[in-house]
Design a protein around this nucleic acid. Structure first.
Lengths: 144, 144
DNA sequence: TTCAATCATATTGTGCGCAATATGATTGCG
DNA sequence: CGCAATCATATTGCGCACAATATGATTGAA
C-alpha cells in the first residue's frame, strides 16, 4: 500500500492546504481592521513584547527574513500602527515600536482566534497534539 | 492560563511556520529539476490522473483558483512539461496534459517525499494522526 | 589605528495566493 | 429562435516568501 506520489497520501499537501485555509479564515476576519495575516503575526509579536523589537528579532520569532519584513513593516508604518527608527546604540538595527493605533488593534484582534477556533472545532487536546507535532517538524527542518 | 494572543500559544502560527518550512525543504530538493513546490503539486495531480485535467479540476484537487493556476500552468508549458489546449467539446475548458518531459519528472520526484520524511523524522502513526487533524481543519473551513 | 571581515537591514527579481473583474462559451427559459 | 443567466478561464492588482545581492555600520586583529 505504498503510493507516496498520490496527492492525498502525502503529509505535505494537507499541511499546505490547511495552512492556506486557516490563513484565509483569519484574513477575512482581519479585513475589517485593514490587516493581512502576516501583519497580524507581526503585531502579535509586538503585543507580547515589553519593548520595541528589531527587524531581526521579529524575523527570528516569525521565521521571516528582511525581504519579507521590510516592505511589510513599511506598510504597517504607513497605516500608522508602528514606527521604524534606527537604534541609536547600533545604527545597523531598526527598531519597530507600536503606536497607540497599533496598541488599540489588540482589542479588535482579541476575538479572532476564538472565532477561527469555533469554525475549526477541534478540541483542546487535539489542538495540543497538533501543535506539538507541528513544532517538532519546524524544529527538525530549521536545525539544518 | 489563558493567553490566546501569545504567538506560540496559538495553533495558527505553528501551522503557518511548519507549512513554510516543509515547502522550503521541498523547494530546495526540487530546484535541481527547475520546479517550484506548487508546480510539483500540479504534476502530482497529473501523474495520478489517467487523462488530462481541466484547469478547474486541478483547482478543485489543489484548492487553488485560476488566478494562481493560469500563470503557473503557462510556466510549466514554457518549460515543456505540459500542454494547454481548449477542450473541443466545450471551448470554455482548457485541458492540461503531460508531455514526455512532464512524465519523466515523475522519476526525479519519486525520491523527494522520503527525503523530506527523513528530515522531519516523525513516525508513520504520528503522520497519520497529523494528516487526519489537518484534513479535518480543511474540511471544516472549506465547507462554509 | 586601520581596514578586512562580519553584521543588520534594504533592494531586486521571481513566483505564488487570492479577491475582484473581464471575456468568451454554453445553457436554458420564454 | 433569441437572449439572459451561468459557467470556465483569463487578467489585474496587491501582498507576501525567499534567494541573491547591495549598502552601510560595527568589530577585531595586525
Amino acid at each position: 500500500m505504498d503510493r507516496p506520489l498520490e496527492l492525498d497520501d502525502q503529509l505535505c499537501f494537507p499541511l499546505y492546504a490547511a495552512a492556506r485555509a486557516v490563513t484565509r479564515a483569519y484574513s477575512q476576519l482581519l479585513a475589517d481592521a485593514g490587516l493581512t495575516y502576516p501583519q497580524y503575526l507581526v503585531l502579535l509579536a509586538l503585543w507580547s513584547s515589553e519593548s520595541p523589537l528589531s527587524v531581526g528579532e521579529l524575523g527570528e520569532r516569525l521565521h521571516l527574513d528582511s525581504g519579507t519584513l521590510t516592505p511589510l513593516l513599511k506598510r504597517l508604518e504607513t497605516a500608522g500602527h508602528v514606527t521604524r527608527r534606527r537604534d541609536p546604540a547600533d545604527e545597523r538595527r531598526v527598531l519597530i515600536a507600536l503606536t497607540g493605533s497599533g496598541e488599540a488593534l489588540r482589542g479588535v484582534a482579541a476575538e479572532i482566534p476564538a472565532e477561527v477556533g469555533a469554525m475549526v472545532g477541534i478540541d483542546v487536546g487535539q489542538a495540543e497534539v497538533l501543535k506539538g507535532l507541528l513544532t517538532t517538524i519546524i524544529d527538525r527542518l530549521e536545525s539544518r
